Simulated scan of single mutants.
Amino acid sequence: MEITITGGSGFVGQNLIRYLKDANQVQTLSIRYSFNNKLEVKGDVIIHLAGKAHDLKKVSSENEYLEANFELTKELFNAFLKSEGKDFIYFSSVKAVADKVSDVLYEDEEPKPETIYGHSKFKAEEYILSQEIPSGKRVFIIRPCMIHGPGNKGNLNLLYNVVKKGIPYPLAAFDNQRSFLGIDNLNFLVKAILEDPVIPSGIYNFADDEFLSTNELVSIISKVLKVKDRKISIPKSLINRLARVGDLIKLPLNSETVQKLTESYRVSNNKIKDVIGIDKLPYTAQQGLEMTIKSFIHK
Rank of each mutant, 00 (worst) to 15 (best):
Y90N: 06
K86L: 11
F122R: 00
S93G: 01
P111S: 06
F122N: 02
E84N: 15
F70I: 04
F80Y: 13
A50W: 10
D55G: 09
V45F: 11
I89N: 03
H54M: 08
R143M: 03
E114A: 03
S120E: 05
A79S: 15
I46V: 15
L66P: 00
K137I: 13
G118K: 00
D55P: 06
S135D: 15
K82R: 15
I89G: 00
A79I: 15
F140S: 09
P134S: 14
V94H: 06
T73Y: 07
L76N: 08
Y90T: 02
F91R: 01
Y65G: 06
L105N: 03
Y127P: 12
K52H: 06
H54L: 11
D44G: 11
V101C: 01
L66E: 13
A53K: 00
F122H: 07
E107A: 02
P134H: 12
E67S: 09
S120Y: 03
V45D: 09
I142R: 02
K121C: 01
L105M: 11
D108S: 08
D44A: 09
I147V: 15
P134C: 13
A124I: 06
H148C: 09
K86Q: 14
D108A: 04
A124V: 08
F140C: 08
L105Y: 07
E75P: 05
D99T: 01
I46H: 11
A50H: 07
E114P: 02
P144V: 03
I47L: 14
L49T: 04
Y106L: 03
T115M: 02
A50N: 09
S93L: 00
S130G: 12
L56M: 14
M146S: 10
T115R: 00
P113W: 03
K123V: 00
K121S: 02
S102V: 01
G118R: 00
F122P: 01
D55Y: 08
E62N: 12
I47P: 10
S93F: 01
K137Y: 12
Y90V: 03
E114M: 03
K95M: 05
R138H: 14
E126K: 07
S93I: 01
D44H: 14
